[in-house]
Design a protein around this nucleic acid. Structure first.
Length: 325
DNA sequence: AACAACTTACCTCTTACGTCA
DNA sequence: TCTGACGTAAGAGGTAAGTTG
C-alpha cells in the first residue's frame, strides 16, 4: 500500500488579496527603509523587489497530488499548484499588474530574478559558513541579553517586518545583534492561511504580492509556505497512519477468524471423513453457531474446495454470533 | 543534439525562539 | 521563577527541473 498525499485540486487565482484590505483593515504598505545597513547585494535585491525587477517565469512547477487514499485529511480546500514550465509566463493574477505597478513589471522581467530573495539568502545566510556558525554561536552569547533586545524590538514581528531582525547575519554584518525570532501576527497568519487555501505554492509574483501585503520579506512568505506544506503533509501522514492501523487491525481480525474457521473445517474433515462423501449441503455448517447453511451444491469436489477455502462456504461477512451464554 | 554548469524552487531535517502549563 | 513540551520561523543541505552557453 502506498501512502499518498493529496493537497487539492486545480489551481485557482488569488482572490484573496483582493479581500486583503478588508481582512487587514488597511494597506500595510511596504517598508522601503529595510535595506539600510545591508550589503550591496542585498540592497540591490531589495531594490529589485520594490521596483518590480523580478522574474515571473518560475511558477508552479510542483505538484504533490495524487490520492488514492480512502481517507484524506481535508486540510486544503483547494489544490496543489502544478508548476508549469518556467518559460510559460502564465500568470493568473490580474490584480497584480495593478498592485505591482503595471508598466515596468513585464518590461523589467529578467530570468532568475525571483524576488531577489535568493541573492538575499546568499548574502544573508551564506552556506560557506564561518559566518553561519558564528551566527549561531553569537546567538548563544547574546541570549542572556535577549530580554533587552526583545524590548528594543518590541511588538515582536514589527522589527522583522522591516527586514532587519529575523536574520542573524543582518545584524552580524553590522556587528550588532543576533537574530530575533519572528512571530507573525494573527492577522498575518490568518492572511497567509487564507492564501494557502487558495494556493499551497507560490510563484514569485504571488510571493512578492503577499510579502508586500503583509509587510513581510518575500523570503518570510516563502518559508511560511514551506513550513505550512510540511505541517499539512505531517497531518495527512498522521491520518494515513491511523487509517492504515485500522486497516491492519481489521485484516488481522479477519485473518484470525478465517484461520480458525479453516482449522475447524480441517478437524471436521479428519474426524468425520464420512461427511465428505455426502452432498455439500450437509457440510455447510457454520463452525461458530453450528447452523447449517442451505447450499445446493452436491459434489464432493466442491466440498473439498470448500475445506481448502472456507470462504467459499461461508461469506466473508462475520460469522453468526453464537448465542450468548 | 548532447552536455556541463548554473539557477531556481522545493523538500526534509534540524535548530532556536516564544509560549504555556 | 524555573522547566519541559510544543509550535513554529528560519537555516542548511540535497534534489529535480529548467536555462544557458
Amino acid at each position: 500500500m502506498e501512502l499518498a498525499l493529496s493537497l487539492g485540486d486545480t489551481p485557482k487565482p488569488f482572490s484573496l488579496l483582493e479581500k486583503s484590505q478588508k481582512i487587514l483593515g488597511k494597506d500595510l504598505g511596504f517598508c522601503m527603509g529595510m535595506a539600510v545597513g545591508k550589503s550591496d547585494a542585498e540592497n540591490n535585491s531589495r531594490c529589485k523587489e520594490t521596483t518590480g525587477l523580478f522574474s515571473a517565469d518560475d511558477d508552479q512547477r510542483r505538484s504533490d497530488s495524487s490520492s488514492d487514499l480512502p481517507v484524506q485529511l481535508d486540510l486544503l480546500p483547494f489544490s496543489p499548484v502544478h508548476r508549469s514550465h518556467p518559460s510559460s509566463h502564465k500568470f493568473p493574477f490580474p490584480w497584480l499588474t495593478e498592485k505591482l505597478g503595471g508598466d515596468g513589471v513585464e518590461g523589467n522581467m529578467r530570468r532568475g530574478g525571483d524576488e531577489g530573495h535568493d541573492q538575499e539568502g546568499a548574502s544573508l545566510s551564506s552556506p560557506n559558513s564561518a559566518v553561519s556558525s558564528f551566527q549561531m554561536d553569537f546567538c548563544h552569547v547574546l541570549r542572556s541579553g535577549k530580554r533587552d533586545f526583545e524590548q528594543i524590538t518590541s511588538a515582536g514581528h514589527e522589527a522583522a517586518d522591516r527586514g532587519t531582525c529575523s536574520r542573524g547575519s543582518d545584524e552580524e554584518e553590522n556587528g550588532m545583534l543576533a537574530r530575533k525570532k519572528l512571530r507573525l501576527s494573527k492577522e498575518q497568519s490568518a492572511f497567509l492561511e487564507e492564501s494557502f487555501k487558495e494556493h499551497n505554492t507560490l510563484n514569485p509574483k504571488q510571493k512578492l504580492a503577499l510579502a508586500k501585503q503583509l509587510n513581510l520579506r518575500p523570503r518570510q512568505v516563502e518559508v511560511w509556505f514551506q513550513n505550512r506544506r510540511a505541517r499539512t503533509k505531517l497531518k495527512q501522514t498522521e491520518v494515513d497512519c491511523e487509517y492504515l492501523k485500522k486497516c491492519c487491525e481489521t485484516l488481522t481480525e479477519e485473518n484470525r477468524r478465517l484461520q480458525k474457521e479453516l482449522q475447524e473445517l480441517r478437524a471436521l474433515k479428519a474426524s468425520q471423513p464420512f461427511y465428505m462423501q455426502l452432498p455439500a449441503t450437509t457440510l455447510t455448517m457454520c463452525p461458530s453457531c453450528e447452523r447449517v447453511a442451505t447450499t445446493t451444491t452436491t459434489t464432493t469436489t466442491t466440498s473439498s474446495a470448500a475445506i481448502n477455502n472456507p470462504s467459499k462456504l461461508f461469506s466473508l461477512s462475520p460469522p453468526h454470533q453464537p448465542a450468548s451464554n
